[in-house]
Design a protein around this nucleic acid. Structure first.
Length: 662
DNA sequence: ATTCTAGTGG
């Protein structure tokens, strides 16, 4: 059974990978014919009699002869071994038995066939055997990455690439391109650039495909345009010519970075160089026009394209719709949507979503809802985006019950979730006050291993705060911070106050620190705010840190409150430090502070050294104790050594006289 | 023999 599947599977594979080779195309290039020849030989090697009887699938006579000659070269044992591996139910033992006989290209052919048949268990098993037995080349890696695709982890692929010993494979441009492309598909643009540099150091000579691969990565990153320019520069330095795919990529980068003028520039430049724009180029330029909502330019471009003999396809017309929507031309958008419907281009939700979202954001929520209902009545295929748009639109317009109903409907209808959808639903449930649903959604996220992002955390912290669950809000914020997200200052500030109100002083201080160590600039009033909270909680050591670091932003009365509190109940070992610091910050210390400090020392005579230090320091800064404090000291001078006390006090007295005499 | 370019949601 599998043999016949293979026999028809391969030629289809060729047609898919190499569109110009389809049977309708009579002008295949010599190199293209080579491609066919090779594919057919492996097809026959794998299929034996079956494919040969199927003459209709084979190309011209000359090629057929070529195929027969090649087939003859393959020993019957090898053919048998290939078939055996392919049909094996226990790959490892089969390979152990007959693997020796197989050549790398045989194994590669089997690997590709496994890929085309989507035999996802067998691919890695065969590949690992090939690795362990060193029977693989660049092509093997390429096929492995291509067919395992989404099932591979980015870091694993990098690891695999780094562990390649074979120098030729390691700098093989196809293999490098395919690794880079894989990383970019996984959203790891940074890693791909890093790896690209390393590959070049190791001897890779990049080609235009390498550059179009990397350029494609610039589409989805911030500041992608300047990164793209660097790549273009690099490419020109290497004397590589920009081809149509490169132009397609840079146009897409321009569009996604809101650079419609630059897009126009590249579009004209490619025409000047004699390249004819295709649907990709037109659609990217159109997309660039959608940024500025310039429907006039867009209409002209579509005309231009038609005169060039191109028929606007689904993507072009959908992008045109996007331009109209961005331009606020809802009448025209409606008409175009109807046209899309009649062309069969509105079978899934995308064009509806574009218009719906545009309407909702333009304040026409009712019209958006009508379109949503209309879309559902027509049973338009949906992955839930339409729901997502309407839920967030309802939330924006504070129609939380409607949002909640739609979130419920989503859960009942769809069973595929992503982070954005989860955030949307959380937002709806939170704003509608549905605690049970909130918790359920969180559990669901956990189960699906969808990790929360910045928005998720913000939604939750706001909600928990609103419900007066401040400690939960605090724990959530801590979690957020631990995951590397910096919460908004206003959110921190209000949570800090709320925590203070429920006497969670330590937690309030943690929130303050999250803010303080995360941001360079913050509202100056926040320091005084946390100071009051810390004083209320008698967290004087922490309060001292705040005062010391931010004295310039704290009002005089607040500093005084802090000083008084610290003298009264702060750590006795730090009293002198605190006084010196406050003085150093330009705050004049009043007599009551010294009185309280001295009383503390008298209560704990073992700290006599600190008292003497204080009394010695005072006159050097122009301070003297008042008479009641002086009497207090004298009364207790036996505790500290009469002689010493007398000396320091007389020094203060002389200072006082010196101050008063002129 | 293998690598690359276009349109949605917070």
């Amino acid at each position: 059974m599998e043999i016949s599947v293979l026999g028809t599977g391969l030629p289809r594979g060729i047609a898919f990978r190499n569109p110009p080779l389809s049977s309708s195309n009579s002008s295949a290039s010599p190199s293209a014919i080579r491609t066919v020849r090779f594919q057919c030989s492996s097809s026959i090697a794998l299929t034996g009699e079956t494919a040969r009887t199927n003459d209709g699938e084979l190309p011209s006579g000359r090629t057929t002869i070529e195929v027969q000659r090649r087939t003859a070269k393959i020993s019957t044992e090898r053919q048998a071994a290939i078939i055996e591996v392919h049909q094996s139910s226990d790959l490892d033992s089969t390979l152990a038995r007959v693997g020796e006989m197989l050549k790398v290209q045989d194994l590669n052919a089997i690997l590709r066939n496994f890929g085309q048949l989507n035999r996802l268990q067998d691919i890695p098993q065969l590949f690992i055997w090939m690795q362990e037995n060193r029977k693989l080349n660049a092509s093997s890696y390429v096929s492995f990455i291509r067919f395992m695709g989404n099932n591979l982890d980015a870091s694993k692929v990098v690891e695999m690439y780094n562990s390649i010993q074979d120098e030729a494979a390691k700098t093989n441009v196809y293999l490098c391109n395919s690794v880079l492309s894989f990383l970019i598909r996984k959203g790891k643009f940074g890693s791909s650039i890093k790896l690209f540099k390393k590959m070049k150091d190791d001897g890779l000579i990049p080609d235009v495909v390498t550059y179009s691969t990397l350029l494609a990565g610039c589409i989805k990153i911030k500041d992608g345009y300047s990164k793209a320019l660097e790549l273009i520069q690099d490419l020109q330095l290497k004397r590589l010519r920009m081809d149509d795919v490169i132009y397609g990529a840079i146009l897409a980068v321009c569009a996604s970075n809101c650079k419609w003028e630059e897009a126009e520039f590249y579009f004209n430049q490619m025409k000047d160089e004699g390249l004819s724009p295709n649907q990709y180029h037109y659609s990217s330029l159109l997309n660039a026009y959608s940024v500025c909502g310039d429907s006039k330019k867009a209409d002209e471009l579509v005309q231009d394209m038609k005169s060039a003999g191109l028929v606007p396809n689904k993507v072009i017309l959908t992008t045109l719709l996007k331009v109209y929507v961005r331009g606020g031309l809802f009448e025209k958008s409606r008409e175009l949507l109807t046209e899309l419907e009649s062309l069969g281009y509105a079978e899934d939700e995308m064009p509806y979503c574009l218009l719906m979202d545009g309407l909702a954001k333009a304040g026409q929520l009712q019209e958006a809802k009508q379109l949503f209902d209309e879309m559902r009545k027509k049973h338009v295929r949906s992955d839930g985006y339409a729901h997502s748009i309407m839920i967030s639109a309802f939330c924006r317009n504070k129609l939380f019950d409607e949002a909640k109903l739609l979130a419920n409907d989503f859960e009942a209808t769809f069973h595929k979730y992503d982070l954005v959808m989860m955030n949307n639903m959380l937002c709806a449930y939170c704003r509608a006050g549905e605690m049970e649903s909130v918790m359920q959604t969180l559990r669901k996220m956990d189960g699906l291993a969808i990790s929360p992002d910045y928005n998720t955390f913000h939604i939750l912290i706001r909600y928990f705060s609103k419900e007066k669950m401040y400690l939960l809000a605090y724990r959530t914020m801590n979690d957020m911070h631990g995951k590397g997200y910096q919460p908004l200052e206003e959110l921190c500030s209000s949570l800090m106050s709320d925590l203070g109100k429920v006497k969670a002083y330590q937690e309030a201080f943690s929130v303050y620190n999250i803010l303080r160590y995360g941001k360079r600039t913050m509202c100056k009033a926040i320091h005084e705010k946390i100071l009051h909270i810390l004083l209320a909680g008698r967290l004087l050591k922490d309060a001292y840190v705040v005062v010391k670091d931010n004295a310039e932003f704290i009002s005089r009365p607040a500093i005084k409150r802090f000083a008084a509190a610290f003298m009264k109940v702060g750590n006795i070992n730090m009293i002198n430090d605190v006084l010196k610091t406050l003085h150093g910050c330009g705050h004049k210390l009043d007599k009551d502070l010294f009185h309280t400090a001295v009383s503390r020392y008298i209560d704990q005579p073992e700290k006599k050294d600190l008292l003497l230090q204080l009394l010695q320091w005072m006159p050097s800064q122009g301070y003297v104790v008042d008479s009641s404090t002086r009497n207090l000291i004298l009364k207790n001078s036996h505790l500290f050594g009469r002689q010493l006390v007398a000396e320091v006090l007389s020094r203060q007295h002389m200072k006082l006289k010196a101050q008063n005499s002129p």
